[in-house]
Design a protein around this nucleic acid. Structure first.
Lengths: 339, 339
DNA sequence: CTGTTAGCGCGTTCAG
DNA sequence: CTGAACGCGCTAACAG
């Protein structure tokens, strides 16, 4: 662990000259440069970024806090964000909040202490303390995927309301009149937005309030399984299930299998979020696909321009459209998945 | 961004006293502590970990370099490693090398510059420069999943040879005599070990060398698809495919589907690495499952004990067993997956 | 229980 | 083109 001083001594120059060679920050004569580089190689010198960042008051490091890194949706978002960041020479610290407020706050404190230059946050709920905490430290922040209340902040998200509307409409067109919505937690905006889109579609179809059947749970397989069991025991029993994310959908499909029901013959199923093609032999589930990679890209691009100080002064809200992909799980006419 | 000095001034104490309050590192009278805490709250003081780490010469941060974070296998490994690390108050920087040597080296340099206390490395090939580079900086390192040649270093991996042997044996028991191995890159130990296990099983079954049919590609869906197409055109055409990882297996299943072949009726398929249950409605693929989470745990535990200086002096090689899970893809008698 | 001194490794500022 | 002085924010070592 050689220091810049040791390199300087060996090369017979001052530390600052070594710094200039390493960072290419000023002209250095060819001869000096050569001697310095030889010394660096000999001592296996590795610059200490802690000291550099401390001095320069910037770390070229950003934090990305997502709610569930085991979900391919978030992996894809993270890839989009990282690709943009590394194009700009910035590194990303990825943190997994597990939808837990305490984990979120722990990680937030950690990365603020690590002096990150900015934070890309998927908030675990729609309150605003976390965002304000970041802002109070004069650290740039962009909220992703979910809105927050009562706070001025940049947001990049997908059109959950519109996607849910479209998906519900599709199920109505297939003739379904009892559609159960298996949702995430009610205090998360993506969940309430999807409920709103669902309601709007029902209202336009002139179905009365009785037709509404919403279950609130979590964005997990276990919760999807459980909500499906409840829905199967409901009266009237739904003929279609709308799963508010991919894990809920898989939980629902499992519960249906365990109940001996076929999809789509005995129950239609549709969901939010496509699974990446690497994980699926043949797509079967009808979904409203969110542009995960693009969301990560755009959110990171906005964060970087905020840091660089060349973003518009007013806060942005960027809403990306979702795409309806009709497949066999909601449509008897399509060939059934058989693998 | 208040500093410790500003807090000290406001509280009417010295900076070191503030430090002691923040870190609970020595006795402080209740009254002083209260005044300091009030000042911290008022100034919204957040300690600067860069400065602290610079001073203490340790960052409590570790690096984890894996080859493909979009693969659930590696996500699971990472979770195992992180869970152990955070139990010990250590943070983990996760880096994705994409099986690229240059990316690996870039990240390695970055984390060494960031002064990580240790590195958990999945090397992109079986050469040893990367490991020696880390060791030359006196940074602790544990290699995971793959061996490296010519270098003394701790290794935690799974029994690829044994797992491949077991899986091949299973296919032989099902009556297959032409089994194609769809493998990763030849210069990666996990790939060559799986080839060795495959060969050993063939040899024990007294099949001559002609029976051996190994394709070398990459651990990706696209490569699995391609190798399967080659295998289908081979003479003799195999009756069973052994995919060396989960992505290759999915590529193979797709290629078979596109060729109009049924599994297992027209072609048996088996693979390495189970997919996590969150992503699968009903397991269909026969696999040799590696204990991914445990591998992450054990590798991290070993790394931490090396750092703490309480690991055995000699280098360890920990080999975890794989588990054969027979399912419908290789067995006509089992019920076919139909979802 | 609290404070003083010194320095971690680096880069900014200014001077040559 | 090169160097000296200084300080980024924090804490180890020592003193009281």
């Amino acid at each position: 662990m050689a220091t810049i001083r040791e390199v300087a001594e060996l090369a017979g120059v001052s530390p600052i000259t070594v710094s200039r060679v390493v960072n290419n920050t000023s002209y250095v004569s060819a001869g000096t440069r050569e001697r310095v580089e030889a010394a660096i190689a000999e001592l296996k010198y590795v610059p200490n970024l802690l000291a550099q960042s401390l001095r320069q008051k910037q770390t070229n490091t950003l934090a990305l806090l997502v709610t569930d890194i085991t979900n391919p949706f978030w992996t894809t978002v993270a890839r989009g964000a990282e690709d943009v960041a590394s194009e700009h020479g910035m590194n990303v610290i990825l943190c997994n909040t597990d939808e837990s407020e305490s984990k979120q706050n722990t990680y937030l404190n950690l990365v603020l202490q690590k002096q990150v230059d900015g934070v890309l946050l998927v908030p675990v709920n729609n309150r605003c303390e976390a965002v304000q905490h970041i802002q109070s430290q004069d650290v740039a922040v962009v909220v992703m995927d979910r809105k927050v209340t009562n706070t001025q902040v940049d947001v990049v998200r997908c059109d959950s309301e519109g996607g849910a509307y479209q998906l519900t409409q599709h199920l109505l067109e297939q003739g379904h009149r009892q559609i159960a919505l298996l949702n995430g937690a009610a205090n998360v905006f993506t969940a309430s937005d999807r409920a709103n889109g669902y309601r709007r579609a029902l209202a336009e179809a002139h179905l009365d309030a009785d037709a509404e059947q919403i279950y609130y749970g979590e964005f997990t397989l276990a919760s999807g399984y459980e909500m499906t069991q409840q829905a199967l025991n409901a009266d009237p029993r739904p003929t279609a299930l709308f799963a508010a994310n991919n894990f809920i959908a898989i939980g629902a499909l499992r519960a249906l299998r365990d109940a001996g029901l076929r999809v789509p013959e005995d129950m239609a199923v549709a969901g939010f979020d496509d699974l990446p093609e690497e994980l699926i032999v043949e797509p079967f589930l009808t979904v409203s696909a969110q542009p995960a990679y693009e969301m990560g890209q755009q959110a990171m691009a906005l964060l970087l321009s905020r840091i660089a100080g060349n973003a518009p002064e007013e806060f942005q809200e960027i809403v990306l459209p979702t795409e309806l992909r009709v497949r066999a799980s909601s449509n008897l006419k399509l060939e059934k998945y058989s693998q």
